[in-house]
Nucleic acid binder design. Structure first.
Lengths: 235, 235
DNA sequence: AGCAGTCTTTGATACGGGTCAATAATGTAG
DNA sequence: CTACATTATTGACCCGTATCAAAGACTGCT
């Protein structure tokens, strides 16, 4: 039977642009994959082209310099799209942070299918434009913010994005588990693990956040965080 | 008469996806604008939605923090597309760096036209994907590179991009005029103007580059620059 | 429970790049 | 050509974050 009809991200992934017949046709070209934490799906520079939908889990996109310095350039969640359609080689690694479940397509198959289904391309375009906006905001963070501003911005950003999985309430939440360890937070913010640890403990000492366990964050004073996050990013 | 038929970027801009009739229809919705250096076409946060093609000149995309710190998040050249189709508000300022000539469309008009012309959306998608890749590479630069590495990477990048205007030869060139002052270079690289000045003079003292006038750069030792750009180790 | 390995925190110190200030070069108007 | 504004360079100093090192906390395994 066609697994797409029961797919949990059917209505949120780019597949939502397709009707039942179309989604079945796309589904035939797809392959399901389970990934364990730390497993890499796509390597920077490889040209075996692969695209995918994330069904479950969290993955990071990262690049690095030859001496090992690493920068995380994106984080993807269920219903997000992974990979680079239309023939360019992969620009970054894609690695699972948690157990993950993805639905992969060979690049060529997907490209052909997309070109025949403009609504699908349209969905993909909207997503890509949104992701570009988000990435450009991150340039401001990396280029111009201090460590405290970076961390405050990061925590607020997480409190907004991490609601999605269950889709229960929308709007930010005040307590959540990060899918990242300290090193990964550092790689997202362009800092060292030590600085992340120190600034996080500063926030804790000031009563702005609580850190009941390694990966859990409670936002106790959202206003204060927002104040630190920017000497006010001009909205 | 329809000005699009004689447009200098007709074959390079997204319009190249359209046939003569289509481009004429799009042309009817467009307005030509001349911009002087420093003039801002779109302001961060405004929702008067406007998109445009660059016909001539160079423009910067920038965001800033309330205390004046600024980050340039993109630079656009002739034939590039500007703006955010499909209803999100403008995320950054768009300002002319040189005299510029653009062809603008109201967001709504363009959105409608695009949805009816999948080849146009496809071109736009390819461009947006490429721009996202480029922007993500910049995250690595801002987050993880030293001042010298940033500057070396920047100069190499410029030597590749600045060929375009005349389209004479492809491949990098070794002498060019930057469309930026020192402050703007600093805002691109997440540095201060003083650091840009110092590192540039270091390169000059080592014979890696020549700086015959304020905005002119000559790459004298491309290998050395490339060595610095990818992970520091000089010589 | 006890141990090993990993991840995180904490402390001491160093250094790159920022800040502040002064000077120099370049551009522009009269 | 001179005067003034703008932009860039240079110097001295300092601060924030990186680096290096060690101790502590958590996790999983037997």
């Amino acid at each position: 039977m066609d697994p797409c009809t029961t797919c949990v991200v059917r209505n949120r992934a780019i597949c939502s642009a397709l009707d039942l017949n179309e989604v079945a046709a796309l589904g035939k070209m797809g392959r399901h994959h389970r990934l364990v934490p730390g497993q890499t799906l796509i390597w920077e520079g490889e040209d075996s082209l692969l695209v995918a939908n994330v069904i479950e889990g969290v993955l990071k996109l990262s690049t690095s310099l030859s001496d090992g310095r690493e920068q995380i350039v994106g984080v993807v969640y269920p219903s997000d799209f992974i990979g680079r359609p239309f023939g360019a080689r992969a620009q970054h690694n894609v690695t699972a942070l948690t157990e993950a479940h993805v639905c992969t397509f060979s690049g060529g198959d997907f490209d052909r299918f997309a070109q025949e289904h403009p609504q699908l391309e349209h969905k993909l375009l909207e997503r890509t434009l949104a992701e570009l906006d988000r990435t450009r905001r991150w340039l401001l963070l990396l280029g111009r913010m201090t460590a405290s501003e970076k961390l405050a911005t990061f925590l607020l950003d997480m409190s907004e994005r991490l609601v999605r999985p269950d889709c229960s309430s929308n709007g930010p939440i005040n307590a959540f588990d990060l899918p990242f360890g300290r090193q990964q937070i550092a790689d997202i913010l362009g800092l060292t693990i030590e600085t992340v640890s120190r600034r996080l403990n500063d926030f804790k000492a000031e009563g702005i956040i609580g850190v009941p366990s390694r990966r859990r964050i409670e936002i106790l004073d959202r206003e204060a965080l927002a104040g630190i996050a920017s000497s006010g990013s001009v909205r």
